[in-house]
């Protein structure tokens, strides 16, 4: 039995991760390694130590606690990741939460209890629970138990996925309890995809096509999502290729995700720096005019942005 996946956040009152008012469960770990990832803390499946300098009150409790001598005020990132043994003693004792553990163990029971509290809001608004991260399908057995338990409460389930999973097992374990799937299509060219996301996109496109066919039965809805990352995914060639692919599958709805630069600020807390300099277009919100142009590209293929 595989180890249960770690969850790095359970967020309530989300209006952007599916219909209605939703709770979103963010799983740690992802088979992809996209250079623009908006949740950098989600890539590593294991727990990580985060340090938010703005919260630090300078009490030095952590310095006394650390047995690896990994913490120092002389270090601009404060934590020496090479020395850190990830024991999290410092985080447990940090009074302000400046040091914190990213990635906690949750049982299915506890997750269900947490998301069930907002059931009245889901009912009123047509909302439910969204599974995201990272990649929720990394541990299909755990996810299956979870979505089944949530469904048993009459709650709408929506999976946000990169699409890289074993389709047969997904179909068997997850699909029966799933009401909607949002799958990301990032780069159509396999070489580009491998270069920017770390893996080939063949399985992803294949999974998408199969699920698109099955969605026609109406048992669940499938919505492709396209991140618009300046100079990387938002190249016209890429968008047209994707649009053509979707048109070929008789798909007429898409959701375009404009670039959101706030993720760069998360990197220092994990001990890294953004590979994109301050002048990079990735440091800006996607301009509205560009968004309109991208919408136009899809519209040409009869595809509307939701």
């Amino acid at each position: 039995m595989k180890k249960a996946p770690l969850v790095f956040s359970v967020k309530g009152n989300s209006l952007d991760d599916g219909p209605g008012i939703r709770s979103v469960i963010f799983f740690k770990g992802c088979p992809l390694d996209c250079v623009w990832c908006h949740n950098p803390e989600s890539k590593n499946p294991d727990a990580e130590l985060s340090f938010d300098a703005q919260k630090c009150v300078g009490c030095d409790t952590c310095l006394d606690t650390c047995e690896e001598d990994a913490l120092s005020r002389d270090n601009p990132f404060f934590v020496d990741r090479a020395k850190c043994a990830l024991c999290f003693e410092c985080a447990q004792n940090c009074p302000s939460g400046a040091l914190s553990r990213t990635g906690e163990e949750w049982t299915v029971e506890k997750l269900v209890a947490k998301v069930s509290r907002d059931l009245p809001f889901y009912k009123t608004s047509g909302g439910g629970v969204t599974y995201s991260g990272g990649e929720p399908t990394l541990n299909l057995e755990f996810l299956a138990e979870l979505v089944a338990a949530v469904k048993a409460k009459g709650i709408h389930n929506l999976i946000e996925t990169c699409g890289l999973f074993d389709l047969d097992r997904f179909r068997e374990l997850i699909l029966p309890h799933t009401d909607a799937i949002y799958m990301d299509l990032k780069l159509f060219d396999p070489a580009e995809h491998k270069k920017r996301c770390g893996v080939d996109n063949g399985v992803i496109l294949g999974n998408f096509a199969s699920l698109a066919e099955e969605a026609k039965t109406g048992r669940f809805t499938l919505l492709p999502r396209i991140p618009l990352v300046p100079g990387i995914t938002d190249e016209n060639e890429n968008l047209e290729a994707i649009a053509q692919f979707l048109a070929g599958l008789d798909i007429h709805e898409v959701r375009l995700l404009p670039n959101n630069p706030t993720w760069h600020d998360k990197l220092p807390t994990l001990g890294g720096e953004s590979p994109f300099g301050p002048d990079s277009p990735l440091r800006q919100w996607l301009p509205q005019e560009r968004m309109e142009e991208c919408k136009g590209i899809f519209r040409k293929f009869g595809i509307e942005n939701m």
Binding site: G58, C59, P95, S96, G97
Partner: peptide
């Protein structure tokens, strides 16, 4: 009492 203050707030 900055430490106590931080604990309370967190």
């Amino acid at each position: 009492h900055p430490k106590l203050h931080a604990i309370i707030k967190t």
